[in-house]
Amino acid sequence: MYYIDPHIHMVSRTTDDYETLAKMGCVAISEPAFWAGFDRCTVDGFRDYFHQLTEVEPNRAAAYGIRHFTWLCINAKEAENVSLSREVLAMIPEFLDCPNVLGIGEIGLNKNTPNEATIFQEHMELAVKYDQQVLIHTPHLEDKYQGTRMILDMLADHSSMDRSRILVDHVEEHTVEPVLDAGYWAGITLYPVSKCTPARAVDIIERVGTEGASRLCVNSAGDWGPSKPTAVPDLILEMRRRGHAESLIRQIVFENPRTFFQQSKHFDLLDPATRNDG
């Protein structure tokens, strides 16, 4: 089955991983800007990173027939440095016309601090100003519930932005309903440790119902920590083992991310199943 991984950090992965993803049916990925495992010190460090996301990774992915899309921001962890964050925010527009940029992301909260909230709001103002979609990181573990609710509070300040152009990621059992009920898209991140397993993700899909499942995506994160870049195929297998219809599986792993991404002028992925139909 063809699928899209809507949140995977390929700068942390080897070229072998691109090959494995292609063999498993991955036709497109989107890579949000995130924390690199260390705090960067200068705006030029981010300029080089954005160059990597908009030029280097698309070429690496294309070698395996995978389309590479990206999102730009300074992530929540480094947003604690407000002055550096504002320099990065001022530089982001230089890259917004790059052909693989889908929007602003993954912005969000990490430890739910006032500085993180300030920079989150400034990213939202940038997204509104440049008519960009938004991809949002929610905190992990004990900070997730509080941080997700704070993010929903802040998003309500931006009523001019269509909620269907915002995806709130890393939802779990206790945060999926507030996100979907507010009209946003939700993402579930599959992780071998500390986050959501494929089995729990399928439980969530089963519980949110047809309408909820129409605004739900699943991703692997595939970052520099313990993670599994092929976690989406693991979810496909779990859904098949439970007897779910192929049409629902395809909706979750292909049609939903494509529908969400198509709201960006830079997303032009055709259905690979029709590629040779002339």
């Binding site: 004990e142 997730k144 519930y145 509080q146 704070m150 509070d153 059992e173 206790h174 945060t175 729990r200």
Partner: peptide
């Protein structure tokens, strides 16, 4: 029937609607 969500909330920091 929602044990997973309850366990998640048990291990979560409290949300204060007046956090701002």
């Amino acid at each position: 029937s929602d044990r997973a969500a309850k366990v998640q909330l048990l291990f979560s920091r409290e949300y204060d609607p007046a956090w701002r």
